[in-house]
Design a protein around this nucleic acid. Structure first.
Length: 250
DNA sequence: GTTGAGCGTT
């Protein structure tokens, strides 16, 4: 997204990714592009967004074609105040598909195991990650000490629930309206391409959510009495027809 | 209208 027209990750290899941190939640790729393009050829700008709400997560990735230009951007743009916030610009350290990154340059894909060992520090995944919620649901052992990692996850969960409550209100239009004075070209493309991205199955889709009713009927035969009786009825009728035929024959 | 450490997209 926001790859200047294309979809999916652009030319992954031999680009230099900058991690732009601490940008405003309303800053778009359009706002960033002229700033970064001044220092070199910007191949792509990507702002990760919340899966449901589509809101910016507050950071961005800017890919340069050439290392010296990326370095220049780091030097010139790190600490620059954009949209009222002092953004941090540095070389990205982790790749989108576990590529090996050296000074922000994607060199080659790296095995999963090595990628994991590289990120041993308790990195907090972003609050929108459904895998986190599954993890929380699965592991009931919340008895770990409330370190910063845990606290952050709790905070993220609370925020998530706040958002859930908000989106559950019937008169809620999930489409964010902060584009009223922003003419984000790339973000508008993104929004128009996937309008239902942040409006999940309109609250509760009944098909996807199988209510786990406790104490279900233990035998599978009892859960469809109508079908069962119909089958019995059909068998009886067949039997009667057979008898009738026999009677007619004799 | 809100948030604020962080590393990634059909």
């Amino acid at each position: 997204m926001s790859h200047f027209g294309r979809s999916g990750p652009p030319d992954i290899t031999d680009t230099y990714s900058l991690h732009v941190l601490n940008i405003s939640f309303r800053t778009t790729a359009d706002d960033l592009f002229p700033l970064f393009d001044k220092y070199g050829k910007v191949v792509d700008i990507f702002i990760p967004r919340d899966r449901r709400t589509g809101e910016s997560r507050g950071f961005a990735f800017v890919r340069y074609k050439y290392a010296d230009e990326a370095q220049k951007a780091v030097e010139k743009l790190d600490g620059r105040v954009v949209d009222g916030r002092e953004m941090t610009v540095q070389f990205a350290k982790y790749g989108p598909n576990a590529e090996r990154i050296h000074k922000g340059r994607v060199i080659e894909p790296v095995p999963r195991s090595r990628y994991r060992s590289r990120s041993r520090s308790p990195r907090r995944r972003h609050r929108d990650d459904y895998r986190d919620r599954d993890y929380l649901r699965r592991s009931r052992s919340r008895s770990r000490s409330r370190d910063r990692y845990d606290r952050d996850r709790h905070r993220g969960r609370d925020k998530e629930e706040r958002r859930h409550r908000r989106t559950r209100s019937p008169s809620c239009s999930p489409s964010p309206d902060y584009h009223k004075d922003r003419k984000g070209r790339y973000d508008d493309e993104r929004r128009s391409r996937s309008p239902s991205q942040d409006s999940p199955p309109s609250r509760h889709s009944p098909s996807s959510h199988r209510s786990p009713s406790p104490r279900k009927s233990p035998s599978p035969r009892d859960e469809s009495p109508d079908r069962h009786s119909a089958a019995v009825l059909e068998a009886v009728m067949r039997h009667e027809i057979l008898i009738l035929l026999l009677l007619l024959l004799f």
